[in-house]
Amino acid sequence: MTAVQPDEPHAAGLSSRLNWLRAGVLGANDGIVSTAGLVVGVAAATTASGPILTAGVAGLIAGAVSMALGEYVSVSTQRDTEKALLEKERRELAESPEEELAELAAMYEHKGLSSATAKLVAEELTEHDAFAAHVDIELNIDPDELTNPWQAAIASAISFSVGALLPLIAILLPPPSARIPVTFAAVLIALALTGTISAQLGGSRRHRAVVRILVGGALAMLITYGIGQLVGHVGGI
């Protein structure tokens, strides 16, 4: 019989890494769409490179900071909630160990074990590590792997910035007459790629995810292009 390798990745750890990867892809997608819409709108109003570069860089920085702050606040709140739940469980174990043991056994019985087996499992797990046993089945929280708000903030800022660089480069490199078509093409290709990756990570249908993201990205650029044309015409830019 083949022995189970002790260093095989735990399912929860793998799921956590996939969630981080999915968040990174979505952050890059946000950077692509928001910056593309911004620079296309400015490029529709003026052919001067200075305003386009200024708007693109400002949008990149503002978006990255906004993403980082939002993620930091969100994850900090989640972490505070997890810590409060863990502390509550510690207190209940200290104050009512017998009731907590009965509760643990009832949970395993609810999962399908017989009453006698559930009680035996609960007792053995409690003897080994009562706190870990309870937080695993009750809260589905690993006390050693609480979410890190700084890590989340930095990852969000980086993924957004990487995505935002694509439309910024695409709008500045070509000659003025080709800027908008080249940017449209580059952005739609990038969105097709991020949509494909997101679908694969989420286990959803690739075609639907790609079409949805392409339509959204194209609409964003078309709307800002129209606004840029209107503002440029009215303002005489």
Score class of each variant (00 low, 15 high):
K83I: 13
D144F: 09
E138G: 04
V182R: 11
A106L: 11
H128C: 11
T147M: 09
V42E: 00
A12K: 00
A105G: 01
P97A: 03
A62N: 05
A58G: 04
E71V: 07
N19G: 12
P9R: 12
S177F: 12
P149C: 09
E99N: 14
L85G: 01
A190W: 00
T126P: 09
A186R: 07
S15P: 00
A118E: 03
F184P: 00
L168C: 07
P174Y: 00
G13M: 01
A23L: 13
L120I: 08
L101S: 04
P181W: 08
G37C: 07
L69P: 05
E8A: 15
S96C: 06
G112N: 06
E89H: 14
Q5N: 15
G203L: 01
T224N: 01
E123G: 06
M107G: 13
A43E: 04
R212T: 07
G163S: 02
E127D: 15
V75F: 11
N19K: 04
F131G: 02
T47A: 14
A190P: 00
L21W: 00
V210S: 02
V231S: 03
L166M: 12
T47D: 09
T81Q: 11
V42N: 00
L113F: 14
I154Y: 13
S204C: 05
R17K: 07
T147E: 14
P176Q: 12
D136C: 04
L230H: 01
I158T: 04
V210T: 03
S76Y: 15
S159A: 15
H128Y: 15
S34V: 04
L113V: 09
A28R: 07
Q229P: 02
V215D: 04
P149M: 05
D30T: 08
A192G: 11
V4M: 07
A3W: 14
Q151R: 08
M221N: 06
L85P: 14
S198Y: 03
W20M: 10
V162L: 13
L201D: 01
G37T: 02
A43D: 04
Q151I: 09
V39P: 03
E82F: 06
S96H: 15
E8D: 15
G217L: 13
K111P: 11
P176E: 05
T117F: 06
A164H: 09
P51Y: 05
A44K: 01
L191G: 09
V162R: 10
E89W: 07
W20C: 07
G163Q: 05
G50W: 02
D136G: 07
S76R: 14
A102E: 08
D144N: 11
A209N: 07
M1W: 11
I169A: 08
T224Q: 06
Q200T: 11
G37E: 06
A152T: 01
H233Y: 13
P97G: 02
T2I: 08
V73Q: 05
